[in-house]
Design a protein around this nucleic acid. Structure first.
Lengths: 193, 193
DNA sequence: ATAAATCGTTCACTTAAGTTAAGAAATAAT
DNA sequence: ATTATTTCTTAACTTAAGTGAACGATTTAT
């Protein structure tokens, strides 16, 4: 199971056995059931999450209903905003599947970084990549209609459409569930002809 | 003029005179006229831009028309995606006002970082802040209607509404210029009553 | 100073998303 | 297994955005 993590890391840096053991000794791994809430609005955590297997979701509750703004699947992670600025979280994070993830805090990060400077490098690369991806996603979102956004998603993350409930997908696309349903029917009609 | 930059840096780290001089010796500063295009689609640059005074804008040309996705004003900067992954740029960057900015490349960054490790720290903080801000903006965009987005902008960056042409603002809000015009009229009507 | 180009607003019309409600289908709970 | 809950779809109606076009107003170019 930890191999998943090591395979991922291997894409960026090469680890010795010693380094792998140091990582394992931190007790990062956690297995959580579908439905578990990892972070609640108003709560402050110092923990970062990284998904090895499964899917977690970030959502706000605005005027009583959920607004999903992100999904994290295999090899994707999130450091909640509240872990950075020590303010109460504005959003929730919950598991939409049984999920295996690593949970880390800044102290663990510091410990590892001090022992193995390589890690710092990997973290820098990862955060650069993340920022770039984030910006492209945002641009794509802004410049597309809901229908285009759905078609993009179908192209780029077809797995999400399978594994995520549609009303959550809808708000991820910035629309209401009924609109997504209609939009899908519309696309299906077009395809038939 | 360089004081603007040093004042900004002072918020994060303290610089000695020696360090300031080292920075100045890189010849970072550039003054550009309104309308200048700093980066074109298809072009590859290694340069990053940081605005000291003025305003620059990032836009795509999709099906022949411009889609503005970001503005950068005082104390905001952008490292074009193409400078990171060495691929042709997908977008343009141009000045919408006479602008004073710093232009840097990775080599200059490396030079400074090697001489003064403090810089690395500042860069890490800045990029963390940026990522966080970016994510919040994205979430806000996704969970709002065009009208709410306009009202948010009026709250958070009222200057932009003054200094940016409205058809560019419109695409920044994800709508057409005519819709922005109408939406503004609508808000104005509501306010009257 | 004048002509040309760009920009902002308005209007009529079209298209798509929001809303409310109802019912079928699928999931979860007992 | 049956009930309860949640999820998805459909429909009718409302509201807002997209589209195409016209017309001043403003800015830019000459």
């Amino acid at each position: 199971m930890q191999d998943i993590l090591f395979d991922f890391i291997a894409k960026y840096i090469t680890l010795t056995e010693e380094e792998k053991n140091a990582l394992l000794s931190l007790g990062l791994f956690r297995s959580v059931k579908k439905g578990t809430i990892l972070l609640k609005e108003g709560q402050i955590t110092r923990e970062s999450f990284f998904v090895l297997k499964g899917c977690i979701r970030k959502y706000y509750i605005i005027d009583g209903d959920e607004k999903t703004t992100a999904f994290f699947t295999e090899m994707e992670g999130i450091t909640p905003h509240c872990a950075i600025n020590n303010a109460p979280s504005e959003y929730f994070i919950s598991c939409i599947e049984d999920t295996i993830l690593t949970v880390s805090n800044p102290d663990m990060g510091a410990e590892i970084n001090a022992k193995f400077p390589k890690f710092e490098i990997m973290c820098r690369i990862l955060s650069e990549e993340l920022l770039a991806k984030q910006q492209i996603n945002f641009d794509e979102f802004k410049t597309s209609s809901p229908e285009q956004r759905y078609l993009n998603l179908l192209q780029n993350r077809p797995d999400l459409i399978q594994r995520v409930p549609q009303h959550q997908l809808a708000s991820y696309l910035g629309i209401k569930p009924q609109s997504l349903s209609r939009l899908r029917a519309r696309i299906f009609e077009k395809e038939k002809n």
